[in-house]
Design a protein around this nucleic acid. Structure first.
Lengths: 395, 395
DNA sequence: TATTAGCACTCGACGCGCTCGAGTGCTAAT
DNA sequence: ATTAGCACTCGAGCGCGTCGAGTGCTAATA
């Protein structure tokens, strides 16, 4: 694809993104002060169409980008605007002000992203499978009930209420607790199984069946930690999109969005795909090989750093009902082992550059904030003393 | 309003609810085998319109119910269908199967309700302000961090991670913990203030400033407990409603729904209103005085039991963007002191009888399930032995 | 007096044909 | 290789007539 075609394709995408109307050769020349006549542009457009980058809704209409066109745009002609300093200030406050629980942090990141982009934001809670268990404490609440507190590497704390046999007393419980800790401490969550944990039985002098009941509950508590939550915000924004004038479409889409587990699964798949790409050390535009046949200008590609986001466009999204959308995600990390996903779903006709900038930015801010909140000294956190500011107002 | 008018109004509401089209005199006679001619019905309809129960979209169109019409329908001509036994079985399972945290219970109730009604369901987490603190434990996690575990009356457990001065050791911490418990145990959450709690300072031998820092965090943890969460499900169902053919309407509505705090606040207001009504011991149709002028047939009213649900119709809903909807809520209770709200938002053109039945039913099931889950022996719970069934499957 | 048959009238929905204009592709000239 | 010119396409928008389900009113009837 020669330079002029690129320029034209970019112009078409830009216009179409803005107006949501098929763009014609004449208006394109006008709006972009191209130094060719509309007839020439028409020629080029016809070729771009043949190559698969453009589509026409009907014979005498203007062109709009195809999935492949968007793909090429995203891979080759993206410009990522800088985020202003003012905004950078704002988000930090937004994320950390009056922050209570860790889960709220990711929730807020999603909220912020939805507000900024005016699209639907989606975030997955951190995935802990790779991190290891540092402490486990079991504490009696009253006969028959106890609370399990887990401390993971990177200082993340989880807990869960469990039922225990009523005849177990506080002493016995804490001795089970110590036994469990001894046998599991340092293990990766993934590696903890019912078998591993049951080797901690037999310390209380109680029948093993009772021990095992507690151990089982502790096990469930640990596994519970690996459960992934999904947060969404900004569903309502998409209703404003002209593509959703068509209510059937909107319906299908929102039904898809309602399948939260599906969406979460798909996001993890995207993460996976991203990691594989990274592992292969391949060129950053691997996933658009079809689009870029020419190797000669890869000089330009090489200069760019590998993007840390992942874009799925239209049909590329393997989720029923999302064929008309684009899905951009990025992976956030807390410490070495813990990671999650945050992203945005919007119409294919999306301001990719702006949105990707924002996602990347929110991602960065989220990671910093997590550092401060979960934070420990051994983390990268830039915390200045341990009294973090917290305003007094409570609801 | 005479019997015939009632019958006609009921018929019109029923038809309109079903078809979403203005209903005319002729089709009304046909569909309901009324023993009057369409001319007579037209007469009555004209009068009903004059009285404010009906509206016409334009001169030559059929009638549709006004807010007042719906109000009268709900207050005077509602029939609540029974819930089938099969369904009753299903919901219990749905609520309790693989249940992990308490918050998930209410979430599931909302989910179930949305699925059954095909409307938007809304639920508020339990409000604990009236319940009292039974235990409070502070447990060290690592230097600088601790976890506060609160046990409320009715056996509800909450906890929260806090930061503490790094120089406080385990012993000192638990002595602060005991002091706090001594000074707060049995107190109503509402009555606990920073002043109350700070009287527990000075037991560790540490400078009071350090004590106070921990106490403040404990205080925040307690207040945190009173925070109300809101759960919604089934937003997408409403897009299917013909009233949302009009995208502007849909937009305004979904924007309103997005203001979750507003919705939550309004639900609490509805709860308040309901309780006041109850307290006054007034007739159940107090809130529709305008609609019912005649006193003579109040015999019928008296025979009915006071409804435990609250219905707000159209303009009655004081939330910007919800003027075209109806909002039905009911209050669930856990133990004596703890209560929350669960309800449904749908179009005014709603199958009131069916929906109210379902809400009441889900409410009942939710209360039973809560009894079992939070449950204690001193509660009403019907638990048979303490091993509740829990399937092994974990994600 | 309450009910009804009859009738003129209203108004939105629908289908038809027309024009308009922004778009196209093709061809021939530069 | 580029462009001016031209015939063609097709959706959007508008006006118009028809159709039918609805109305209100009036006069006749039980």
């Amino acid at each position: 694809m020669d330079e002029r075609k690129k320029q034209i394709l970019k112009a078409i995408v830009d216009d179409y993104v803005e107006t949501a109307e098929p763009v014609g050769s004449k208006s394109l020349v006008e709006r972009h002060q191209l130094k060719y006549s509309s007839a020439t542009i028409r020629h080029e457009m016809a070729e771009l169409e043949e190559m698969g980058y453009l589509e026409k809704p009907h014979t005498s209409a203007g062109r709009m980008p195809s999935d492949l066109g968007y793909r090429a745009y995203v891979d080759n002609m993206l410009s990522l605007p800088e985020i202003s300093h003012k905004e950078a200030e704002g988000i930090r406050d937004f994320l950390l002000k009056n922050l209570d629980e860790a889960r709220e942090l990711i929730e807020r990141a999603a909220e912020y992203l939805a507000g900024k982009t005016n699209y639907l934001s989606v975030a997955l809670s951190p995935q802990y499978s790779d991190s290891s268990l540092e402490q486990i404490k079991i504490m009696m609440i009253e006969p028959g009930r106890a609370i399990v507190v887990l401390v993971l590497s990177a200082g993340v704390v989880h807990d869960r209420l469990i039922r225990i046999p009523a005849m177990i007393d506080e002493k016995q419980l804490s001795s089970i607790g110590r036994a469990v800790e001894r046998c599991l401490a340092g293990k990766k969550l993934d590696d903890i199984t019912l078998v591993t944990i049951s080797s901690a039985a037999g310390e209380t002098g109680l029948p093993e069946a009772l021990d095992n009941q507690v151990l089982f509950e502790a096990y469930v508590a640990i596994k519970q930690t690996e459960k992934i939550e999904i947060f969404m915000d900004g569903r309502h924004h998409l209703l404003n999109q002209p593509e959703f004038r068509d209510l059937d479409r909107a319906n299908r889409f929102y039904k898809a969005v309602h399948q939260e587990q599906m969406v979460a699964g798909y996001m993890m798949e995207m993460k996976q795909a991203q990691e594989e790409q990274l592992a292969q050390g391949c060129d950053w535009d691997l996933d658009c090989l079809e689009a870029v046949e020419s190797e000669e200008e890869s000089a330009l590609s090489v200069r760019r750093t590998r993007p840390s986001y992942m874009v799925r466009i239209g049909q590329e999204i393997a989720l029923e009902g999302m064929e008309d959308m684009s899905f951009i995600t990025t992976t956030y990390r807390i410490g070495q082992k813990i990671s999650g996903q945050i992203g945005v779903i919007g119409p294919k006709r999306m301001q990719y550059g702006k949105i990707i900038s924002q996602i990347s930015f929110v991602n960065k801010a989220l990671m910093e904030a997590a550092g401060e909140h979960y934070g420990r000294q051994d983390q990268d956190s830039g915390m200045s003393g341990q009294e973090e500011k917290r305003t007094e107002g409570q609801s």
